[in-house]
Amino acid sequence: MATNSAVDQSERLRRPAGIRSVWLGDTRVSFVPDGDVRLPPRGWLPDTTDEVWAGHRDYLDASGHLVASIGALLVENGDRALLIDAGFGPQTLPPDPGTPRGVIRGGALLGSLAELGRRPEDIEALAFTHLHPDHLGWAWHAAPGGDRPAFAHADYLVSEPEWAQRDLLAAHGMAEEITGLAPYVRTVTDGQEIFPGVRVRITAGHTAGHAEYVITSGSRRLIAFGDALHSPIQVDHPEWSAAVDHDPVLSADHRRRLVTELEEPDTFGFGIHFADVVFGQVRRDSDGPAWLPVDA
């Protein structure tokens, strides 16, 4: 696996990711882009300061926002295919002054999947890290020209504690999404293998039942850590929780352990919102742990 120059990495922090793939043994994992969201940095990470961002301008776009990619992770083993998360779906929303969110857009996922040589019907299961709108989109929106979601043929795998809390989500304006998911949901438990070499790991903090997926093939493993981390800057500052974290203290405690784990040999991470550096490893430099982007 090859890394990129410091200049290229800085540019990639300010743009959404395109399709990117890496190999773990005989398993291919690919980021499937759907869109992006722009995040006000101090609104999203409220424990930061203006001084922090003045010293880290390389993380911000021309408008001063963090760039967060939105999409899914395609896991392929031979002819079999699993999708983790489902993007935002065919919609665009303007900035919401009531939340720490700028403009958010989706819609590219099915085309991205086709570029990777896969059709929706090739996906045998759709696994979710958690039940937030930017991870559910294509699981409940009707497919273009149809009246059912594109992945309605597949099992929707949701962690048991996450699904048990669905009424809270419905009470916060997500009743339509939860109703749309319900006919297809099958709950999964901590440690369960859901696909060859893919195990669920429940790591509540961002949500009450947030899940990670540990993918192992050959001598390598990849941790798809969902929204445990939203930006590579949190690798060096795991104490910075996102404004939307369900339990900021629990979330920060988990991030500290996760960063340490990502330093282990032959261990890679997948950060679904990590701009255009979605695959990487954690390596220490003179300033502490840092995210080192990795490409096939």
Rank of each mutant, 00 (worst) to 15 (best):
G117H: 00
L83M: 10
D85C: 02
L60V: 06
V52L: 14
V7R: 12
N77V: 13
A175Q: 15
L136C: 14
V158A: 03
E177Q: 11
D26I: 01
D34N: 07
Q234W: 14
L250A: 15
L109K: 04
G111I: 01
H141K: 00
L110E: 02
L39A: 07
R38V: 03
R255C: 02
V7G: 07
P265L: 11
T189Y: 09
A275R: 06
F151H: 05
E160P: 06
I84W: 02
F195H: 11
R186A: 14
P133A: 10
D266M: 13
H65D: 12
D50I: 03
V294P: 00
T129R: 05
S112K: 03
D155P: 00
R15Y: 00
P95E: 11
D34V: 02
P133D: 14
H65E: 09
Y213D: 05
Y59G: 00
S219F: 08
V282L: 11
V7C: 01
V103Y: 01
L229H: 12
I215H: 08
Y156V: 07
W240D: 04
D79S: 13
P196E: 05
G55K: 09
Q281E: 13
S21L: 07
I104S: 04
R57S: 11
T187N: 05
D247Y: 02
D155L: 15
L181Q: 03
L13G: 00
F128G: 01
T99M: 15
A228I: 06
G43V: 08
G43M: 08
P133V: 10
I19Y: 07
P16G: 01
P293I: 01
P196N: 04
S5N: 11
H141W: 14
G25V: 02
L66N: 12
P46N: 13
G102I: 03
R199A: 13
A182M: 14
L13Q: 05
R201P: 03
I19Q: 05
D167S: 15
R221D: 07
F274Q: 03
A252V: 02
H141F: 15
D36R: 09
G137E: 05
T27W: 01
P133N: 12
I70F: 07
I123C: 06
A62Y: 07
L222H: 09
D8V: 05
F225C: 11
